[in-house]
Design a binder for these strands. Structure first.
Lengths: 102, 102
DNA sequence: TTATCATATCAAATAATTTTGATATATGCA
DNA sequence: TGCATATATCAAAATTATTTGATATGATAA
């Protein structure tokens, strides 16, 4: 069941919106990274590096995004890869269109 | 210039989302109202009546919605009529589609 | 003008969210 | 097993958002 208010809230935090943009564009950064590059998504520590955030802060925001259904998690060994759930975004957009007769 | 984070925040508050729904469906309620019924929109005091909110609270939320560009205000005498700005919503939806490649 | 009504604004109180540092859990490897 | 690494969780602090009651502004009408 789609909750447009919850999805709006997830998108309403600037750093979370930036993380979403990072996920859609895939991570590409030079130098050593904690997890091996993957086409499966972007890992926690890559997000830390990209935005200079500490680990618990990244973890918190990824949980918010995941619980809103905007991001899916894929554990791989000790890492976790995140990717966009575009279906939720599509449903959200559709719902706004219906609710507000766009 | 469209600010998707700001629009998301405006939509992320439950009572604001309900007010938006009220605006799109137009107000229709029995009994005495403070302002005369209008096709131009819904007035502050009608929103107070609909949700049992005090005046300053309604005023605060209408300001949030207006500043996000989601609602337009139309002063009429001592009243003010609010209506949805569907253009902003359409632009928001378009922007999400582009940002996240939907 | 004065009284009344609708809305706006303000400061203080309350509530919700976010950030941080510490610690816990879980996996992989020597 | 024991150690290192990646992520999760927790409690406290910091920040931001919302609510409230009081007062201000601005328009109407007597």
């Amino acid at each position: 069941m789609l909750e447009p208010v919850k999805i709006s809230k997830a998108l309403s935090e600037p750093i979370r919106y930036k993380i979403m943009l990072l996920l859609v564009n895939q991570y590409s950064r030079e130098g050593p990274q904690c997890c091996s590059s993957s086409t499966e998504g972007v890992c926690n520590c890559e997000i830390m590096a990209e935005f200079g955030m500490i680990q618990s802060r990244v973890s918190y925001h990824m949980k918010e995004l995941t619980e809103a259904g905007l991001v899916t998690e894929k554990p791989f060994g000790k890492w976790k890869y995140y990717s966009l759930n575009t279906e939720t975004l599509k449903d959200y957009v559709t719902r706004l269109g219906m609710d507000f007769k766009l």
